[in-house]
């Protein structure tokens, strides 16, 4: 039988752990709401940039602008791995890393750009192809941060002989569900629907300049969207993980309390038996 005092100490320690996991769940819920809000606010801008790009492309099917057409010479490839900076979010990072490792084994020549501390910490021990790592970006979720990442990628693509850049990230489906997405970032993929926009715009200055500018902006908002999705998914994953941790703690506390009461009962019984038998001894 465990010592009553030991059980009591364990119960107290689990109780304080439960308090922490509960608080983390609340914080994750608040951050999730913030991230969701940002996604909603980013949508009109992102959708419209995408639409404009579609319209211009539709009008310029022959355009060989590097941002939107497959390069003729195959160059290097790179891929961006988006993980979180912090742990305690269930299988969020594991899912990404597993997919990333699979991708690496299929494309051993691909260079890697890490966003998020967790992915970098894992991959740096297993591969030497990491060319850049962005850490602690999720602390200050600001559009200018994603612009920086985007312009780094655009420079790689336009100036450094990379012919394809992919990104792998967690997409936010719901609080309890994330989906790992592998997506081609550059060159920009043709839009899925080829519906004709009824309007004939007048372009100024010329279409290639606009494709270039819109393409750059498109990558900016894509990165922004990817980071927001990933951060929302992370907070969702953390919320669920912390919720079940809190439940587990409560269950454990229940079991230990039962054990504690049994032990207390047993000690009382022993004590009474001792007194009773002592009294019995005096009587006789």
């Amino acid at each position: 039988m465990e010592n009553i005092r030991d059980i009591k100490i364990r119960i107290d320690s689990i109780k304080s752990t439960r308090q922490i996991t509960k608080a983390m769940k609340m914080v994750a819920a608040a951050n999730l709401r913030k991230a969701q809000n940002k996604i909603l606010k980013a949508r009109p801008y992102a959708d419209y940039i995408e639409l404009m790009l579609k319209v211009i492309r539709f009008k310029n099917k022959e355009s060989r602008h590097p941002l939107i057409s497959e390069p003729e010479i195959k160059g290097k490839t790179a891929f961006v791995v988006v993980t979180s900076d912090r742990g305690l979010c269930g299988s969020f990072n594991y899912n990404i890393i597993r997919q990333a490792m699979e991708y690496i084994s299929q494309n051993p020549q691909a260079d890697i750009i890490c966003i998020g501390r967790k992915g970098f910490d894992y991959l740096k021990k297993r591969t030497d192809r990491i060319i850049k790592s962005h850490r602690d970006l999720f602390n200050q979720m600001d559009f200018s941060v994603s612009v920086e990442v985007a312009s780094f990628l655009l420079d790689l693509y336009l100036l450094e002989n990379y012919s394809q850049i992919n990104v792998i990230y967690n997409e936010y489906k719901s609080v309890i569900q994330q989906r790992v997405v592998l997506k081609q970032l550059l060159p920009i993929q043709p839009p899925e629907d080829d519906t004709i926009h009824p309007l004939d715009f007048i372009y100024e200055p010329d279409q290639d300049t606009l494709i270039e500018e819109l393409g750059r902006k498109y990558i900016d908002v894509e990165i922004w969207r990817v980071m927001l999705e990933s951060s929302a998914a992370e907070q969702g994953a953390r919320m669920t993980a912390m919720d079940s941790a809190t439940d587990n703690a409560s269950e454990l506390i229940g079991q230990l309390t039962l054990k504690f009461n049994r032990a207390r009962q047993a000690s009382i019984t022993t004590e009474i038996i001792e007194i009773a038998s002592g009294a019995e001894a005096i009587k006789s």
Binding site: M52, I56, L199, D200, F201, I202, Y203, E204, P205, T209, L210, E213
Partner: peptide
């Protein structure tokens, strides 16, 4: 302020894109 100069827009303007 467009790249090719400032321009004014009134209602019923023709469809137009610029930087």
């Amino acid at each position: 302020p467009g790249v090719e100069g400032d321009f004014g827009v009134y209602a019923e303007h023709t469809p137009f894109i610029t930087k």
